[in-house]
Design a binder for these strands. Structure first.
Lengths: 125, 125
DNA sequence: GTTACTGTACTACAAATATTAATACAGTTA
DNA sequence: TAACTGTATTAATATTTGTAGTACAGTAAC
């Protein structure tokens, strides 16, 4: 399916997340298409299934896939459907604005605080 | 000058950065005003000078102060003057963009990932 | 020059956190 | 039941982070 650099400083679960994101964003994997099972992919890549699981969990929390116990993990339709270009645009805008904010001295902590405000959730340190 | 919570989970150098930022933003410290030397403040707070140094370095990299070897550290004039309105504007833009992103189904987790990407600058192995 | 201040760089070490793995649990389908 | 699926818990490592100890280097006053 793809290759990993096992001795990179970048953790393999993170490499996995990136590669899979690419496949989803670039339509190589279609809506609701089943991803390899954690064990299958693990065996194929000669790593621990739990590492795959971590990558999948991350992808799920970011809205790229959904997982069903006993069934499998699948490409999340919403992510792909309507506003793909719009989504890409917003992601780029976010990155630009982050850079600008940080250039002005706004800390990532403050940015996260703003995010929480919008989200409505409440948290503390 | 101020108090620190030595047994907080938040590192003391970070607490220092926040407190000092407050003093600068709220005009308690004026442009080009000298901050306490790293050793002086360290002794006063009963912590290691290097911890102060780390806070100062952070403040400098964020544009709040500037340091001159052998002379001291001082409040950076630029930070205070022009950027105040700009800062408010960027904060508003961030909130708007967050709302839009979440409306499109981008999760807060993904936003934080994007933030980390920008924050880290490009780093690989 | 010497002295007494300044910031800075380098190293080290303990604590916290992150990464991966081993194992066991639980749902689905035939 | 058997053979798949994802998930939770725990533990062993590896890596990062926070702080400190020490030495180096510039500035200013004498």
């Amino acid at each position: 399916m793809f290759e990993l650099d096992i001795r990179s400083r970048k953790p393999i679960y993170e490499q996995l997340v990136e590669k899979l994101k690419q496949l989803i964003i670039n339509d190589v994997m279609k809506e609701d298409e089943k991803l390899p099972s954690v064990r299958e992919l693990a065996q194929q890549l000669t790593i621990n299934p739990n590492t795959i699981q971590k990558a999948y969990r991350e992808l799920e929390s970011q809205g790229y896939i959904y997982s069903l116990k006993g069934k499998g993990s699948f490409v999340h339709p919403v992510t792909k459907s309507q506003n793909k270009e719009e989504l890409t645009k917003v992601r780029e805008e976010l990155k630009k604005l982050f850079a600008e904010a940080m250039y002005l001295g706004i800390t990532t902590e403050e940015i996260q605080t703003l995010l929480r405000e919008v989200e409505g959730g409440e948290q503390d340190d």
